[in-house]
Design a binder for these strands. Structure first.
Length: 805
RNA sequence: GCGAGUGUGGCGGAAUGGCAGACGCACGGGACUUAAAAUCCCGAGGUAGCAAUACCGUGUGGGUUCGACUCCCACCACUCGCACCA
C-alpha cells in the first residue's frame, strides 16, 4: 500500500486545527513550562523555503519537549508595521491595512500547511490596535521615566524613503530598506536613551547562550572604549577665553604631539562663536556641503580629507601652553564622544592625512619612523616604545607614560577618566504613515504632554493619502482631525505628534505579549509573565540579530526596572539559523523574487518530505544552497517508514535491535536539543536500514521509533501510529534509553602500528591490553609476536591500540 | 583597515584528539519486467595491482602528539559583520 501524503497530511492538519492540541496552558498544575520562540514573520510577502530553516527546528523542538512532559509555549505572530510592509503595499498599490490583513492570513495558512505546531490562539500582529496599545504604553513609560526625549539635530535621512533613519538603519551610509544614499538633515526627532543602558546590555550579552561570533558583533556594536576626556581652553584672536572644547581620547600619551583640534561639522560651538570666527561664511559653506554629501560619499573618499580652519580661534595645550589651531573636519563624527578630537598627525593616520592636506606641522612624541605615515598605537603599544619630545616623560616607556600623563592631567584638573560607547541613543522617529502613532501632543502652554493611559490606543487613522510626503513630514500631518486635538492637561488647542515609531518598536517586546496576548488591561498579566519567564530557545535568522536582540535587551531591562515584568533577561538561548541560498549563491528572500515556495515542494513531495529535505541539506547554522537533488532519498525513506506497518512482528523489544534502538533514542534526543536535524535524519535512516536487513520490527520498537521521528515528520508518524495503536501519538511520552544497552558486547577495535591503522579486530568489550595483545599475536603474527620487544604500547580501552616498534 | 568564521570525493555533507568521507544525491553493475518507470541488491576517495595489499589523501607550509580534519604558528582563498569610533 503506497503512502498517500496528500490525504494523510490534510487529515492531520484539519484535526490539529479543530482540536488545538498545541495550546499552551497558563499555570499548568503539574508540567514544567518550556518557551520556544520563532521570530516574527515579516508581513511583506509569502513564506519561502528559507523560512523552514528556522521554523521547522523550532517546531521539532516544541514537539519533542511536549513528549518530554513540558507545557510548551510555541507562539507565532507578524511584524506588520514599518517600511518593509509599507513599501511592499505601495509597490502593489494596496492600502497597507488591507495588505497586512491579507498577508497575515496568508502566512498563517502557510504555517499550518507546514504542520507547524504553533498555538495559533495566541497569534499577534504589531499593527493591531490591541497590540500597539501596549507599544504606545511602553513609550509613555519611557517618556515618563526620562528615557525618551525629542531633540533637534542633524540626523540620518533617506531622500528616497523620505524618512529619518537610525544609525542602525543607515549602516555604511546606505538606507537599510531601499539601499539608497543617506544624507544628513536637521530635524527634530525622538530619541530613546539606549546609550545609558550600554553596560547593562553588555551584561545581557555575557549571560545569553548564543554563538560567540554573534556576541562579538553585539559587543562591537556597543563599542565600549576607555580613555580620557580632556578639556581645552578656547580663545579668540584677542586672546580672550571664549569657552572650552572637550575631547575624548584613548591616547593621552600623545598629548605633547597635538598640533590641531578637529570638530565635527555639526558641532554646536560653531553657531555659538560665529562672531569670533573670522571666516564664518567659508565655514558655513563647508557645513552645508558636508550635510548634502551623503555619508557614503564621505566614506568613499577617505583618502582625501576635507575640512576648514576656524580662523580667529585657537586652544591652548594645557601641558605645553602651545597655541593649537581648530578645524572643522568631516572625519570627526558628531555622534561619537564629544564630537571633537585632539589630532596628533605623527601617531594617527587620519590626522596625518589631514595634516598633509592642510600643511599642519607634525610633532613626533614616540619613537619610530613617522616620515611616511603615522606610527599608531597598535604598533607603539605592542613594542612599548619610548617617549620623546614630551618634557619630563621623554625616554619613558609609553605604557608607563600613559599612566603618568593621565595622573598629571587629572591632578591639574584638565582631564578625567572617561568611558565612551560607539552605540548612540536610538533615533526613534519615522516620517511615514504605517507605524504606531506617538501618544503625545504638543501644547503651546504645557509643552510635550503624554496622553492619559486610559486614552490608549491612539488609533492610526485610515486614509488613502498614505504615500510619503515630499517635504519630509509624515502623511499624518495632512489629516487635520488627527493633528488637531485638545491638550489633555489644560484643555486648550494642541497638535498631535505626526511622526510614527520605527518598525523595530513592535518587535522589541513581543515575546512578552505572547504570555497573555489578549489582555486589554496590561501588556501582560504579571503572574503569567512570571510563569512563562524567559524564552528558553529563540530561533530565527541572523540577518538583523545584533540590533534586534540589543533592542530587546534594552526594552526588557527598562520594563524590569519599572516593575512591569518579572525578569531581566528576555532570552536564555538564541540560536541563529543559516540561510537557504538560490542557485547563484544569493540569499533566498521575498524581496529578490528567487524564493522557492513551500507550496510547490509540498504539492510535489508532501510537507513531511519538505521539512526533512531542507534540513538534510545542511546544518542549522549553515547557509545551504537550495536544490531538489536528493529529495528522492527523503521520499524513499518516508516510503520505507510507511512500509514498517507491514513488518510488525512480536511485542517486546527484540535482542537484535535493543542496542540500535537505545543508541537511536539517545542520539535523537541530544541532537534535537541542539537543533541538529541533519544528523537525526541520518541516524534514523541507518536504523531503518538495520530493520530492513532483519526483515521485521516489533510493535514496541515501532512505537518508540514513530515518537522519535514525529517531531520532524509529524503527519506520517501520526497516521501510522493511529493505524497500529489505535490512538493519537500526541498522548505518548518520549522513550527512555538504558545506559547498559548502549554498548555492544563485541566491539571492533583498530590496531595501529606506529600510528597507522593496520587491522581492525572484532573483540569482546572491556578487553584488557594483555588479552588484546595475545589476540593480535595469535591472529596477526605479521603485526607482532609473543616475546617481541615493543618500544611502547598505547591502549585506550574499547577505543584503540597503538603499537610503537 | 579591524573583528569573526569557513575551507573534507563529482555534489550536499558526517566525524572536534583515536578506523576520514557516515547518511543521501548523482554515477556504474545486477535482479524483477516484453520494455520502461518504480522497487530491491551490490560497487565505488586517488594512484598501482587480477588480487591480497601498498602508497598518497581533509586549502598550503611548519609544529605539538604514540596518534591531528580536529590543537598551536604562519600563509593563501572565500564568506559574514563592523568600518574615518579619536
Amino acid at each position: 500500500m503506497n503512502y498517500d501524503f496528500k490525504s494523510v497530511e490534510k487529515k492531520w492538519q484539519d484535526r490539529w486545527e479543530k482540536e488545538k492540541p498545541f495550546k499552551a496552558v497558563d499555570f499548568h498544575p503539574t508540567k514544567p513550562k518550556f518557551y520556544v520562540l520563532y521570530e516574527f514573520y515579516n508581513i511583506s510577502g509569502n513564506l519561502h523555503m528559507g523560512h523552514l530553516k528556522g521554523t521547522v527546528p523550532a517546531d521539532a523542538l516544541a514537539r519533542y519537549k511536549r513528549f518530554c512532559g513540558y507545557n510548551v509555549l510555541f507562539p507565532i505572530g507578524g511584524d506588520a508595521f514599518g517600511l518593509p510592509a509599507e513599501n511592499a503595499a505601495i509597490k502593489k498599490g494596496i492600502n497597507p491595512h488591507d495588505f497586512v490583513r491579507d498577508g497575515m492570513k496568508r502566512v498563517l495558512d502557510q504555517s499550518k500547511a507546514l504542520g507547524l505546531s504553533f498555538d495559533y490562539d495566541r497569534t499577534i500582529c504589531t499593527s493591531d490596535p490591541e497590540y500597539y496599545h501596549w507599544t504606545q504604553w511602553i513609550f509613555l513609560q519611557l517618556l515618563k521615566n526620562g528615557k525618551a526625549y525629542k531633540k533637534r539635530g542633524f540626523v540620518n535621512f533617506c531622500p528616497n524613503c523620505q524618512t529619518v533613519l537610525s544609525n542602525e538603519d543607515s549602516q555604511g551610509g546606505k538606507c537599510d530598506r531601499c539601499g539608497g544614499d543617506v544624507v544628513q538633515k536637521e530635524r527634530s526627532v525622538w530619541y530613546l536613551k539606549m546609550k545609558e543602558y550600554s553596560d547593562r546590555l553588555l551584561d545581557n550579552v555575557d549571560r545569553i547562550n548564543m554563538a560567540e561570533n554573534l556576541k562579538d558583533a553585539q559587543r562591537n556594536w556597543i563599542g565600549k572604549s576607555e580613555g580620557m576626556q580632556v578639556s581645552f581652553d578656547l580663545f579668540n584672536s584677542a586672546d580672550k577665553q571664549v569657552g572650552k572644547i572637550d575631547i575624548f581620547t584613548t591616547c593621552i600619551e600623545t598629548i605633547y604631539g597635538v598640533t590641531f583640534v578637529a570638530l565635527a561639522p555639526e558641532h554646536e560651538l560653531v553657531e555659538k562663536l560665529r562672531d569670533d570666527i573670522k571666516n564664518f561664511a567659508e565655514v558655513e559653506k563647508y557645513r552645508e556641503q558636508t550635510a548634502l554629501r551623503s555619508e557614503f560619499d564621505r566614506l568613499s573618499d577617505q583618502k582625501t580629507k576635507t575640512g576648514v580652519k576656524l580662523e580667529g580661534l585657537y586652544i591652548k595645550n594645557p601641558l605645553t601652553g602651545d597655541k593649537v589651531p581648530v578645524y572643522l573636519a568631516d572625519f570627526v563624527l558628531a555622534s561619537y564622544g564629544t564630537g571633537a578630537a585632539m589630532a596628533v598627525p605623527s601617531h594617527d593616520q587620519r590626522d596625518f592625512e589631514f595634516a598633509e592636506v592642510f600643511g599642519i606641522p607634525k610633532i613626533q612624541v614616540i619613537e619610530g619612523d613617522c616620515s611616511k605615515c603615522a606610527v599608531e598605537k597598535k604598533e607603539y603599544l605592542e613594542k612599548n616604545s619610548r617617549m620623546m619630545n614630551s618634557a619630563e616623560f621623554s625616554g619613558m616607556p609609553v605604557k608607563e607614560a600613559k599612566k603618568k600623563i593621565a595622573e598629571k592631567m587629572i591632578a591639574l584638573g584638565c582631564a578625567q577618566k572617561k568611558i565612551n560607547y560607539r552605540m548612540a541613543d536610538w533615533s526613534f522617529t519615522r516620517q511615514r504613515y504605517w507605524g504606531e502613532p506617538f501618544p503625545v501632543v504638543f501644547c503651546d502652554h504645557c509643552g510635550v504632554v503624554p496622553l492619559d493611559e486610559k486614552d490608549l490606543p491612539l488609533v492610526l487613522p485610515e486614509t488613502n493619502d498614505y504615500l510619503p510626503n515630499v517635504n519630509g513630514d509624515s502623511p499624518l500631518s495632512k489629516i487635520e482631525n488627527f493633528v488637531n486635538c485638545k491638550c489633555p492637561k489644560c484643555g486648550r488647542d494642541a497638535r498631535r505628534e505626526t511622526d510614527t515609531m520605527p518598525n523595530w518598536a513592535g518587535s522589541s517586546w513581543y515575546w512578552l505579549r505572547y504570555c497573555d496576548p489578549h489582555n486589554p488591561n496590561v501588556l501582560a498579566d504579571f503572574d503569567k509573565l512570571k510563569y512563562w519567564g524567559s524564552v528558553d530557545v529563540y530561533t530565527g535568522g541572523t540577518e538583523h540579530i545584533t540590533r534586534h536582540v540589543l533592542y530587546a535587551f534594552f526594552w526588557q531591562n527598562f520594563l524590569y526596572e519599572i516593575g512591569a515584568v518579572p525578569t531581566r533577561d528576555p532570552f536564555i538561548r538564541k540560536m541563529g539559523s543559516g540561510l537557504i541560498l538560490d542557485d547563484t549563491g544569493k540569499k533566498m528572500s521575498k524581496s529578490s523574487a528567487n524564493g522557492v515556495s513551500p507550496a510547490e515542494v509540498i504539492e510535489k513531495y508532501g510537507t513531511d518530505a519538505a521539512r526533512l529535505h531542507v534540513h538534510f541539506l545542511g546544518g542549522y547554522e549553515d547557509n545551504t544552497p537550495w536544490t531538489y537533488d536528493g529529495i528522492s532519498g527523503i521520499t524513499s525513506f518516508l516510503d520505507r517508514v510507511w512500509a514498517l506497518q507491514d513488518m510488525v512482528k512480536g511485542d517486546a523489544v527484540s535482542d537484535e535491535h535493543r542496542i540500535e534502538l537505545n543508541k537511536l533514542i539517545k542520539k535523537i534526543g541530544e541532537d534535537l536539543e541542539d537543533l541538529k536535524l541533519n544528523t537525526c535524519i541520518s541516524a534514523m535512516m541507518i536504523f531503518i536500514k538495520k530493520i530492513r536487513e532483519d526483515g521485521f520490527i516489533t510493535k514496541s520498537e515501532l512505537h518508540d521509533f514513530l515518537i522519535l521521528l514525529n517531531p520532524l515528520a509529524p503527519h506520517i508518524t501520526s497516521e501510522i501510529f493511529e493505524r497500529v495503536f489505535g490512538r493519537d501519538i500526541l498522548g505518548e511520552s518520549w522513550p527512555k534509553f538504558d545506559e547498559k544497552f548502549l554498548m555492544e558486547d563485541t566491539i571492533s577495535i583498530p590496531v595501529q602500528v606506529n600510528g597507522k591503522v593496520k587491522r581492525v579486530l572484532s573483540v569482546k568489550r572491556d578487553i584488557s591490553q594483555e588479552e588484546l595483545l595475545d589476540v593480535i599475536c595469535e591472529k596477526h603474527p605479521e603485526i607482532c609476536n609473543k616475546g617481541d620487544t615493543l618500544k611502547k604500547v598505547v591502549f585506550v580501552p574499547n577505543k584503540i591500540i597503538n603499537i610503537i616498534k
